[in-house]
Nucleic acid binder design. Structure first.
Lengths: 214, 214
DNA sequence: AAAGATAACTTGACGGCGTTAACTTAACAA
DNA sequence: TTGTTAAGTTAACGCCGTCAAGTTATCTTT
């Protein structure tokens, strides 16, 4: 019970321990179902202590998502160094899918929930368009390279449109798995097969027909 | 205030007026944000009256989704009569996307929210695999036809896998629009272009290369 | 050394939520 | 006429997110 003036380090420690506890609970039982009181109990503080570090519950969610966006981009960064541009594109699809499927609850928050929770104009940490921090910028930069290398079908001329189609395809496979993968209404093929086929279908559909093998 | 023994018709009328009010509110401000009290107030009953017709809030949601699944399949039914199988496939993609984008909140409930809300084993109204009531069965039946007609690339041999890839592709384009379409982080191309390109990309990626024109 | 200010909390409360239990009352059945 | 029952309502329970006010130990100033 003894309050004490804290160093910046100690303040940060509580800050991150709130985020860690919130992340665990959000992942464990979903964001709507976890309460501020639970988060507080898990770290041994009273519920209102959370409000000393975050404006409200959404603010915690926002902070977690911000971290996750950076983590996604960081995880994909190594792929940017692959020399062959078709391989790079292909690996980005796989890397993205792996992130989505191994962090389904993060992914849901990032890409499958309504918009207003995260107003990106408020995100100061991430710099838009910076390929080291923005996964869409990474994708677009690879697509730009491939476009300049003449790898796409001649009728495809818009780099954003191509990028958004690739993103949507992989996102569709991942998000359908996350939201409906346990639904036995459909006789699902294994998710690995579905990701693989999506990647190949997109590649064949987008790349120049002469040399589709990679 | 006068309670009265009701005919089956009158009971049904209240039943559907609850569903109508709930649907409006769910669409208007989202499912989590609408309360039982609001639904009740809108139809002029006390909150607990809803529990005479539905077990709980999720039960209302479940009933709405059930109706929506049937509506989706019904809306796509006319497409099943198109003679050319490639055209049929193409039109099914468009029809599905049109449903998703013109009923975004229904679509979110149906295909973008966590699984446990709707346990389809409890849905007695819809018959699984019946192409008149099950949109996935419609898709699969067209894919089956195309497969038997030799329209797919020779390496594609599993009808479920093909169906699920097509579904995922269109779903990806639609769901990304619904959850991120108003997000200016990305310079989105118009959604109609994105749907069209997705459809064409999937067709080229899946159909036999000789005659991709339709 | 004493007094005041402040950082870091906790306690208590507010209004609203989903839901249940108990009550009310009009219509029906015996 | 007298129950029984259908169709509600009222009141309450235990949650929830959040805010205002109170409480202390520490730091700062004199």
């Amino acid at each position: 019970m003894p309050p004490k003036h804290k160093t910046a380090d100690e303040r940060l420690q509580l800050h991150t321990s709130i985020l860690d506890a919130a992340r665990e609970l959000f992942i464990e039982r979903g964001v709507e179902a976890t309460t501020m009181r639970e988060i507080a109990k898990r770290i041994g503080y009273s519920p209102t202590a959370l409000y000393l570090h975050f404006k409200d519950k959404d603010d915690i969610l926002r902070a977690l998502c911000e971290t996750d966006f950076l983590a996604l981009a960081a995880g994909l960064q190594s792929i940017m160094g692959i020399p062959d541009v078709r391989q790079r594109l292909s690996m980005l699809c796989d890397g993205y899918a792996e992130f989505a499927l191994s962090h389904p609850n993060h992914y849901r928050l990032m890409f499958m929930t309504p918009q207003p929770v995260i107003d990106k104009t408020e995100l100061k940490m991430i710099h838009r368009g910076n390929p080291e921090q923005d996964a869409y910028a990474q994708l677009k930069s690879i697509v730009q390279d491939a476009f300049e290398g003449g790898h796409f079908r001649p009728e495809l001329t818009n780099v954003d449109l191509i990028s958004q189609t690739l993103w949507a395809g992989i996102h569709g496979a991942c998000s359908l798995q996350i939201s409906k993968g346990n639904d036995d209404w459909v006789e699902w093929r294994p998710i690995s097969e579905r990701i693989q086929m999506m990647r190949e279908t997109l590649m064949i559909g987008i790349l120049r027909p002469d040399q589709t093998k990679m």
